[in-house]
Each structure stands twice: as C-alpha cells, then as structure tokens.
Nucleic acid binder design. Structure first.
Lengths: 75, 75
DNA sequence: CCACATTTGTCCGTATGTATC
DNA sequence: AGATACATACGGACAAATGTG
C-alpha cells in the first residue's frame, strides 16, 4: 500500500527541490502562505506547517511583515 | 527583547533535554499527546506540532495506535 | 502620528483517518 | 466491537512586524 506523502510534506519537498535545483537562490523570496497554499491546493494552515518544517531545517527564514526567504547558507 | 519561545518550541526543547540528559533513553515511550499537552499547559494541537518537529529531527518516532518513542539511534 | 493592508507566526478546536490493543 | 493513540488537514482568531499613505 503505497500511501502518498502527506500534503505538508509534498510542499516541503517541492520547495526543497526548488532550492536544491537552484531555481530559488539564497535570499530569494518565496511565495506567500496564501500563494503557496493555492499552488499546491492545500489550506493556508497546511502551507504554514510546511514552512515551519523548512524553517526548522534551516532552509528558509521568515520575516514578519515581509516574507519568507531562502537562507543564505554557507554549507 | 527577548521574547520567549513559542509554546511548541518549549515542548520541543523540554523533550529534547529529557533525551539528552538520559532521562529518556532510546526506545522509551513518551507521554501521549494528551498527557504532553496537559503537562505543558498547551492544547493537543500544539503538542502535536511539537512532536512533528521532533519526528522531523529524527529524535523520536511515532507508531500509530501505540505511542511515540525515542529513536534508537544517535545520529 | 495614525490608519490600513499585507504577511508571517502562534494557538486552538474539530473532524477524520489509520493502526494497535 | 470498542477504546486508545498517533497522523493529517482545515478554519478561525489573534498577535507582531512591515510598508504605505
């Protein structure tokens, strides 16, 4: 029974790939919660859960009032 | 302006410390969602968010119907 | 200085599914 | 069959920071 990944993980993986492929570079701004939610056909809550994971992993950083940005990662 | 950490991070940190201090060892069972929520005076939703982070970090593993357990393996 | 809109961040309650006992 | 417990998803309500007018 191949259960597909949870929605929030699909978003996590999608964004991670965009970063690793270079489509999104350090300092680049990600779509807003609402845009990300719409793009992946999930609720805003779910998009937020995904971004919380990405923040915890250190891939992105959020700035209130401005947006979410790809971490300038030396690594 | 040290604003204090978010509730879900407090739970993450508390559990992490219990693991690192040896109070909780590999294979040990954590409190249930409801118990964890009560102990830290947060909602079940918030406790779940904390455990999702801990799972993502690889510190614990959830098993449906059974419980959440400290991962067997360091690193 | 103030009002407003935008956007991220947090918290909660509920519903539903899945697995175990 | 029923109880327990983890897992996912959603929507609503605010707070905090930013930018604009």
């Amino acid at each position: 029974m191949p259960s597909r990944p949870a929605d929030y993980l699909r978003v996590v993986n999608a964004v991670t790939e965009q970063i690793e492929s270079g489509e999104l570079g350090p300092g680049d701004k990600l779509p807003t919660y609402a845009q990300l939610a719409e793009q992946h056909k999930v609720s805003v809550s779910t998009a937020q859960a995904a971004l919380r994971i990405l923040r915890d992993r250190g891939l992105v950083e959020g700035q209130q009032g401005k947006g979410t940005f790809v971490t300038e990662h030396p690594r």
